[in-house]
Design a protein around this nucleic acid. Structure first.
Lengths: 350, 350
DNA sequence: TTGTAAGCGTTATCAC
DNA sequence: GTGATAACGCTTACAA
């Protein structure tokens, strides 16, 4: 494989001159430039970014560390981040932690070794120490989706508290008195915030003693299990709040297996919509977050930091949107025709 | 940031000795090893993989170049590839081409510059030249999801022909005489193969003159448009075959907007299921591919190549699975209850 | 079992 | 405008 040196020899110039032509930096006479370009062409020269990065201390690479791309919410975040990165000429490394702090730690170490310029992190745990370590090694960090206990990095997240409060107020309005929230791990801020929104909405209605919170995982199986537990309570809840899409799906499966009808017997609302169109017959009342925007904004913020922006850390809270559908009984109790249902759901921007 | 040299000085050994300790390669006396490890610890030394890669000509990095992670099929492929890579200590770079050859080319060039060890490619076009170029630059390639016109790389793909044949035979069995296939770009092999399967099934039943093929994009909007065109044909088709999930969704929207009921007025079958559970009320009769396996197998094959496996190129055709559901009329014409429907769909392994 | 010397392919720095 | 020189941090090849 031809190197910059080879090109220099062939063009009869110094290596640095080739470098200047290739990178369009510094002054190069038109005549020399053409000679170099011809040599590049002839030799099929492809610059070695590793060598460049070693010297320049810039890899033009970002990483996105999240729990699972397979979750449609994160899929969309990944696409947004990827688009931002590509526009800036950066590549994006993807890492799935499955919400395990140990995996996260392992990936972060690998990323520092590779000298990625920045990391978009959806932290599985507290993350404060990890972020400080990254920064110590010269790696910038922007946190996505989740809050930090201390302001050690920029954060881009959705309005978990407001969204869940709206969703649960809706349940109260629908006449539900006994309800339960099925949520993810306690150490994840979205999990805590969404429970908090639930609590606040119930407290407003004087129902704090009538509701329960179940902590588990942001997974279908956990959603299934938690729904089962919730249904065993007495008095039995007439409404369930699933704090993410996977929990909602698990809960739905549990309800079906038990012969509990939604929304006739039990209402179900959830955080995170499935991408519009992906579901043929949208059914769940949800609060959805601007996932694509989250990925995009996060990457943009990160890139700005890399360009030396030294503003204090900021927390960007993106607005969420509530969509009322059948699962909370908002459209009567008769199943609608699966096809040809033209009545649009009610959408409220929060 | 501490370097290997710093560690060497602190431990009173030569740099190469530190290298041996860090990489667990070559002989190092226990006593020396401990001394080095202490120094590593004390200085917070993190190896610089860039420098290592520059010398060793290995980046321990793979790339996955596909059309759009947002497509649940590719999301799952990405997860499979990511898991394989992680197990081998490799990182995975993700690139979205949106089925544009120019973007693909741009990404491939960037990947060569970065000296990734291997590329998992879902080619937007013919790709033969691109693959040869990559290999010329020392980058291994495994092609996913799509066939190549010449055997220039390993291929891991699903059984498009067999799957679509089965799906379309099913349509014939259901009594459909006039039908149409809505498919992606002509230059993509899956698109051609699925049309071919459709044609073969129709020919078997002597219906070749009663069917039409519409080529477009693997997108919702294209699916919508093609369904519209198909419905304008006379005689109007009573069955549509969408060759991927996005086209199916677009078609479904078109049918709904036109007040055409599925499956009463028109039957719809499709390639690619949505991940089980992701859809609350599965409705579409589909052939689904083992997406996770495809990503995993592809990455494994690639890693084996990197380890010097010199077998001739192989084409791995993964079996697909047909699932009969309501959209093809397999379960009668009455909409079933959306919840509490315990009757399992019919699944056939091909 | 450990070390020396050279080089991987660039770019930063400074000089002309 | 162009170039010489050194350096980025590591590993290969060979020697001791």
């Amino acid at each position: 494989m031809a190197t910059l040196q080879d090109v220099a020899k062939k063009a009869g110039v110094a290596p640095i001159t080739v470098s200047r032509v290739v990178n369009n930096s510094g002054y190069v006479a038109q005549e020399v430039r053409e000679r170099v370009e011809a040599a590049v062409e002839e030799l099929g020269y492809v610059p070695n970014i590793l060598a460049r990065s070693l010297r320049s201390r810039q890899t033009n690479t970002l990483a996105l560390v999240l729990s699972d791309v397979t979750n449609p919410f994160f899929t969309t975040v990944a696409r947004g981040a990827g688009d931002s990165a590509a526009e800036a000429g950066f590549m994006l490394i993807l890492c799935n932690t499955d919400e395990r702090e140990q995996e996260e730690q392992r990936y972060l170490e690998m990323l520092v070794q590779r000298r990625v310029d920045g990391v978009l992190l959806v932290p599985a745990g507290k993350a404060v120490r990890q972020i400080q370590q990254l920064r110590q090694h010269g790696t910038q960090v922007v946190v996505l989706d989740r809050r930090l206990s201390e302001p050690v990095a920029d954060v881009v997240r959705g309005d978990s508290l407001g969204g869940s409060r709206a969703l649960c107020r809706h349940l109260v309005q629908q006449g539900h008195r006994v309800s339960a929230v099925l949520t993810g791990p306690k150490q994840v801020s979205t999990s805590r915030d969404r429970v908090q929104g639930f609590r606040e909405a119930m407290a407003e209605a004087g129902l704090e003693t009538m509701c329960r919170a179940f902590y588990g995982q942001y997974s279908q199986s956990s959603g299934y299990a938690m729904a089962g537990e919730a249904l065993n309570q007495t008095p039995r809840p007439t409404a369930l709040f699933a704090t993410n899409n996977f929990i909602a799906i698990g809960a739905l499966n549990c309800l079906r297996d038990r012969g509990v009808k939604v929304p006739e017997d039990v209402a179900l609302v959830a955080f995170d919509d499935l991408p519009p169109g992906l579901v043929t017959f949208p059914f769940l009342t949800v609060v959805s977050q601007p996932a694509y925007e989250m990925g995009r904004k996060g990457a943009e913020l990160l890139l700005r930091r890399l360009n030396g922006d030294a503003e204090p850390y900021q927390e960007v809270v993106l607005p969420v949107e509530m969509t009322l559908r059948r699962s909370s009984g908002s459209f009567g109790t008769q199943p609608e025709s699966m096809i040809g249902d033209a009545s649009p759901p009610l959408v409220e921007r929060l």
